[in-house]
């Protein structure tokens, strides 16, 4: 976990943002901690931070970085982190059931026409004729853990194609990549910026898009502790507003491409500070651009998708039957899509 203090990065900030900051009336800012993964899908928070949108909203943000979504969800439940963005997983739903976490907004979504998550097969499987998701019947499908978003995607693909898949839990994406490269598992689904370089190496093949199997898939959501959602309405609203401004900039620059080439380059440079920071800019830029998926405007939620996910988790007996949509989601902050 790396912590970046706001003050330490002040010097790096753009002049515009800095002057905006000075122009603000001197008032005590609310300190909050935001959990993040070093993925492009978390860019909205980074943009809101770098461009001073959190400051505008009266929030003093400190990032807490994680390696995986699961510990981040637990950190929110334990109160070590105030807000975070992650996929809807069985763990998150269980924490909501225990009154520890609440989904308050939508983030990353699949959208037809925009490059989204890909369905991959190993070279061996591809050569044996699996060139289309419908031919995956009886094949193995890699997931991190039961109840992960990978598990959900695989199940949706299987349901729509009317096939059966053998789910293989491998815990970490690194282990999955090794396994699919060496042909130990047949298939997997993953975000484009990981999928494309893998396919380019020839070890795996892209045979379809997740978007074709899951309608308006709400991939990640903004969530917070139940306490924040219920009692810190002002702060939560402020966070969502700033987050949405960041998302809007990000969509404009890299998804809709309405900000021009300079705008796109600025955005990639900004994101590069957090994502693939260990790689040179030239190498990181294509990955960042490839990984750009739409972050919902105004943090709106695809209610139907969230309900579908919740129902699937219940049907699979991964979470308790008693959990309702309202236990998981506080819909009072953002619009439904």
């Amino acid at each position: 976990m790396t912590k970046i203090n706001r003050r330490q990065t002040i010097g790096l900030m753009a002049g515009v943002a800095a002057s905006a900051l000075i122009a603000l009336p001197a008032q005590a800012k609310t300190k909050i901690k935001v959990g993040a993964l070093r993925f492009t899908s978390h860019a909205a928070s980074f943009v809101a931070f770098e461009r001073g949108y959190f400051d505008d909203a009266g929030l003093d943000v400190e990032f807490v970085f994680f390696d995986a979504a699961q510990p981040m969800a637990i950190a929110v439940a334990s109160g070590d982190v105030d807000y975070a963005v992650t996929a809807i997983s069985g763990g998150l739903i269980s924490l909501a059931e225990k009154g520890a976490a609440k989904v308050v907004g939508g983030a990353l979504s699949e959208e037809k026409g925009i490059d989204g998550q890909k369905i991959l097969v190993s070279d061996a499987a591809f050569k044996s004729g699996v060139t289309d998701p419908s031919k995956l019947d009886g094949r193995s499908f890699a997931i991190t853990q039961a109840g992960s978003s990978f598990h959900y995607m695989g199940a949706k693909i299987a349901a729509k194609e009317g096939i059966t898949l053998k789910f293989v839990p491998l815990q970490k994406t690194g282990a999955i990549i090794g396994a699919i490269k060496s042909g130990q598992v047949d298939a997997w689904s993953i975000v484009p910026h990981i999928a494309k370089p893998l396919a380019a190496s020839g070890a795996v093949h892209i045979i379809g898009d997740v978007a074709d199997y899951v309608d308006n898939y709400q991939v990640t959501t903004v969530f917070t502790s139940a306490g924040n959602a219920a009692n810190e309405r002002e702060q939560t609203q402020a966070f969502l507003t700033a987050f949405s401004r960041g998302a809007a900039d990000f969509n404009a620059a890299l998804v809709d491409k309405t900000a021009g080439d300079d705008g796109a380059e600025d955005m990639v440079k900004l994101v590069h500070k957090y994502v693939y920071a260990d790689r040179p800019y030239e190498k990181a830029a294509p990955s960042i651009i490839n990984g750009a998926m739409r972050i919902n405007a105004d943090a709106a939620m695809n209610v139907a998708s969230i309900k579908d996910q919740l129902d699937w988790f219940k049907a699979e007996d991964l979470v308790k039957d008693s959990i309702t949509y309202d236990t998981l989601v506080d819909g009072s902050y953002v619009k439904a899509k």
């Binding site: 699961q70 969800a73 637990i74 439940a77 997983s89 069985g90 763990g91 269980s94 924490l95 225990k98 991190t144 853990q145 039961a146 109840g147 992960s148 053998k166 789910f167 293989v168 839990p169 491998l170 815990q171 282990a175 396994a179 130990q184 598992v185 991964l318 979470v319």
Partner: peptide, 18 residues
């Protein structure tokens, strides 16, 4: 890695589902 059934797999799954 790759276990659908087993006590270890069961514990890991329970952990990830909290």
């Amino acid at each position: 890695l790759g276990a659908e059934y087993g006590i270890g797999a069961y514990i890991l799954q329970a952990g990830s589902l909290y």
